[in-house]
Design a protein around this nucleic acid. Structure first.
Lengths: 360, 360
DNA sequence: TTGAAAGCGCTAACAG
DNA sequence: CTGTTAGCGCTTTCAA
């Protein structure tokens, strides 16, 4: 199979310096090296010096994997997120990262494209890595079978001394050893729909998103509740949850206009969708807010980049990230005492220039 | 110190199932379990079954840390990036993540805020993790002392069987065991400046960025070369590299206008800056492109969200990420034979609606 | 086809 | 203050 001249044999991989190498060079035991490196035991100044010199000379870096084998945790947190470019997740991850850096933790981040199977596979993979916690951001579904899968992961993580944190996602219905950091998604949708109604709109379209996603489902719920509370009949032809992306917002809006549904206001499920709505409206020669009011959700910078600036629901994205990391690290005794704890952050309306009373 | 009733003692951390647990339950040796799990040795079907059943029953997940101790690598790639929200990095990381997923690798990602010290600290930390490679995206500086620091990391990583990959960054000047995946940054800046000149502009302002950052330095260089090539004198009062962010683009532009520098076109160093430029122009009652032409760089979605749509330089962000991951994984023998390899991806102009001939 | 045993690099008692 | 030693959970010869 492999001849003696096999190149793969020649290029034997260089080995990194180990604690024994350092110990030998410094003429001490490995225990002593460990002690000066961790600084958790008294070591004579002279010895310490000798060790440090050896470390420097060898360019020694402790092997975190070996350390993880004897220690409690890995100081690594896993993050499972649908995607990374959308500013919603961008800011959320930014908050996570800030908090992680402050706590001296590293983040493994992986994306699911919203596929539940991939989500589960990633959680399992991170469990193999023995991460101190895995934070699932905006889980893919909101149905019993999915909940069961997640609860199962929560159990197995917990049984390992790790834990599951749900972020920007509704808590699991059954009690399970997980923590949740959510935001008032439904309430925000209610408030902005309510605002639209207050200004005089009756025919309010909802554009973008997919009902399978919990976050989108919640927004729909808030929208419906506001309508119902004001005695406005729900018209399914006004609900266009046909997907994500600017393009989707644009085609949905075009369809809406083409079918002359009589909509006087559009609630875009997020700002990327709103950008598409703006495009379609411009193409149709409709002015915002004179001919059509537009409102959105999230309050990312895009809300102010568009003209006119969007009236939208502010979501505390970075704070959500920070809180999730806090939950991931929070005292483990407290955790075992009070498993399925839920933190819910508030949302609020930001009034800008895209909403006005209907024309007629 | 710790009384027998100490709560911390009671809450001893649950231990995960180990390979021995599985072996015992399946009445085989750990070696056999290892073999069926890795599928790299023949195992009798019946035995395999018994093992698999035990694995399922115990919810066993191999400990990646223990595995890393005996195996070649960790299947983890480290990514060090200035920040995560900016779509430039967002798309780049997206490309990295896609490629990593396809290759079954996990990504540790951490941000530096552009601070060289933090960058080095993160590389070192990832070295401790024994990542298979660390990808530094858009390094913080472009000066000898910084190059030395990086080259040093490249060496130590290489000496460990890992490697350093520079992405969206110029290659290190001295030969070092690193790979580079860059894009034609200077060329893109040259081309767009050239375009502006071709349309008739002579007073072209450069707005945003910081000269310390290599990427920004390169864009400045391209701008200067284009000017010089056309015999246009460089006017330092037209160069406003005072920072990042929409706000910075806005104040710089306002200042530019206030000082009546006679600029007829503005080259924004990226699209976020361009958004600020747009704001300032709108405030000053100037129309784009009639009263002022604006061009930008990167070609992120923001380029088409702004009105009018930006003429800009397209950067192959996702591809950059994919190539960087490829470089991180590429055959290690090839690597040791041909260390400081450089891949450079092309950029190109995208003509949209923000550039026209100067008014007078 | 399977098992025994020797590490991988580190930490943590336990002695001294 | 420092060294010895026994693992942590896994892979991998070497034998059987």
């Amino acid at each position: 199979m492999s001849s003696p001249a096999d190149p793969a044999q020649r290029t034997a991989h260089r080995r990194a310096a180990t604690i024994s190498d350092v110990a030998e060079l410094a003429s001490v035991s490995t225990a002593t090296v460990s002690r000066v490196l961790n600084g958790n035991y008294p070591v004579a100044a002279a010895t310490r010096d000798r060790v440090m010199r050896a470390v420097a000379k060898l360019g020694y870096a402790a092997n975190a994997n070996a350390r993880a084998l004897t220690r409690a945790g890995t100081e690594i947190i896993g993050v499972v997120v649908p995607e990374i470019v959308d500013p919603f997740f961008g800011y959320l991850i930014h908050g996570l990262e800030q908090a992680a850096a402050e706590a001296g933790r590293l983040l493994i981040v992986a994306t699911t494209s919203g596929e539940p199977e991939r989500e589960m596979a990633l959680i399992d993979r991170m469990r193999e890595q023995r991460v101190d916690a895995v934070i699932v951001v905006s889980g893919a579904r909101d149905e019993p079978s999915y909940h069961r899968l997640l609860a199962q992961r929560a159990e197995s993580l917990e049984g390992m001394g790790s834990r599951l944190v749900l972020c920007a996602h509704p808590p699991l219905p059954q009690p399970s050893p997980s923590r949740t950091v959510a935001y008032d998604n439904e309430g925000g949708a209610f408030a902005i729909t309510e605002h639209l109604i207050g200004v005089g709109h009756r025919r309010i379209a909802l554009v973008g998103g997919r009902r399978t996603l919990p976050a989108m489902r919640n927004r729909l719920d808030g929208y419906l509740r506001a309508l119902t509370a004001r005695g406005i009949e729900v018209d399914e032809t006004l609900i266009r949850m046909d997907g994500f992306g600017r393009h989707s917002g644009r085609t949905s809006t075009a369809a809406l206009l083409g079918e002359s549904t009589g909509a006087t206001a559009i609630l875009a499920v997020n700002e990327t969708i709103a950008a598409g709505v703006y495009e379609a409206l411009a193409e149709a020669g409709l002015r915002i807010p004179d001919d059509m009011s537009v409102a959105a959700y999230d309050d990312t910078p895009l809300a102010t980049d568009l003209t006119p600036k969007l009236t939208t629901v502010h979501v505390p994205l970075e704070q959500l990230g920070r809180e999730a990391l806090r939950a991931a690290l929070a005292d483990r005794d407290a955790f075992s005492r009070d498993p399925d704890e839920v933190v819910t952050l508030g949302t609020y309306l930001v009034h800008r220039d895209s909403v006005a009373a209907p024309a007629h």
